[in-house]
Design a protein around this nucleic acid. Sequence first.
RNA 1: GGCGCUAUCGUCUAGUGGUUAGGACGGGGCCCUCUCAAGGCCCAGGCAGGAGUUCAAUUCUCCUUAGCGCUACCA
Length: 471
Amino acid sequence: MPRVRFAPSPTGYLHIGSARTSIFNWLYARKNNGTMILRLDDTDVERNTQASVDSIFDGLHWLGLGWDEYYRQSERLALHKEMANRILAQGRAYRDFTPAQTGEEERSESGEPWLFHPEMRELSSAESDRRAAAGEPFVLRFRVPRGENRAVKFKDSVFGDQYKKADEIEDFALLRSNGMPTYHMASCADDVDLRIDHIIRGQDHLTNTFKHVLIFEALCETKPKFAHLPLLIAPDGAKLSKRKHGPVVSVTTYRDAGFLPEAYINFLCLLGWSPKNNREQMSIPELIEAFSFSGVNRSNAVVNFSDEDPIDPKAQWLNGQHLRSMAIDGLLPAVRATLEAAGLRAEEANFAFVVDTIRARYTSLHDFATKGLPYFSDEFPMEPAAAERLDEPRARELLRTLGDRLAAATEFTEASVETALRELAAEAGVKPGVLINGSRAALTGQAVGPSAFHVFTAIGRERSIARLKKV
RNA sequence: GGCGCUAUCGUCUAGUGGUUAGGACGGGGCCCUCUCAAGGCCCAGGCAGGAGUUCAAUUCUCCUUAGCGCUACCA
């Protein structure tokens, strides 16, 4: 039973990269009958916001990514400290009483990387204890084992064998001088305590992992496996950021653009992962079935948006694919919600038929309320192109006649309407196309749309007749 | 600056020591057709650069370049 976690920091809204990390964790858990854990890494009290927490929950709910266990790091600080002190007791950490650096760091500019404060690393435990007891503030640092051939290594499920000389790893902080755990400490302590066995996260943590391996080795026998995901970047090659790229990085952008959660998930999965069989459109169950780390790419993927269009064209296409091919019953609630949000109401009697009739040409849920307006409301605009259809010679006159004939007939089916229309066209000596296209224009105000006879049945007998007579 | 990761059409990607380098989106065209979509077919478009290994490199090695990440008492 694998245990995985999605551990966002609530310092901004749920963004596209986090969403994808969450999806991959979720897919892995579902595929392997594992446990999905949601853990809020909220140790940075200054930057945490409730709005961000809400955004994360909203996003995950929308995507339908459930979790089996839920934790907040801020409620587990005692555990983090306890584990940090355990490392200190082992002698694998030491107190560094050097005052916190202020202003610009000089170390990183000097060429040689900073590793540790020698006098602090060598401080005797008696002296260290004495100063700590006296109340002198300190940061607790990991005593990275040094020496000629010391190295830290781990195998990444995506990036393969990773190796780093211990002498290139600085004595990183475990506990800050205010007693709060650092990210590294809190994260590893929780991963140990929650028995996480596969850490799936962004590639930005790949080099941090050496530090984490050190902590895990101090804290437990078997360290977890790691899988780092390539990052999502902007078309300009820069990493996605709210400041630079605006709201496109938020999952709400796609939700608000009328995306189906499954389509968005499908899209995100294709960024940095491939089933390797040319499959593109996939349902959630198919994604679960196909998911594997061997399909994960190692290079960053560009989310293809622009100033004019915040939505990746391929995502839009995928949304259309899902819209037109998913089970109609699964689509109906989403369409209903979209219509209600637009102040429209669906005729329940033939709702499924209407949606099924028009969905093939839509790529967003919003299209049902905009392009689909004539199907759900009697008030809709007459587009210029449609008006031209009505301006064809004799079109209006014959359409009104058609309305009369349909009103007189008892039957109203696709076939009966077609028969009536073609008979009328033949009698009048006009091409059927005039009445066919004219009907569509009269019934929907649009020059384009589904087959005219489908439109008749979708709009319904009474409304169709009324719209023809009004022409 | 140091360390690391990465590099195939505009974008997402498949792929191999010998392939016409495959698919998808987007773009262009054709077919279908009552319109528009959908669908089918076709076209343009790519192995970052340089060495080396090899009979043969897009593929293996090295270098360069570029991008990204890490280099905090942020996460």
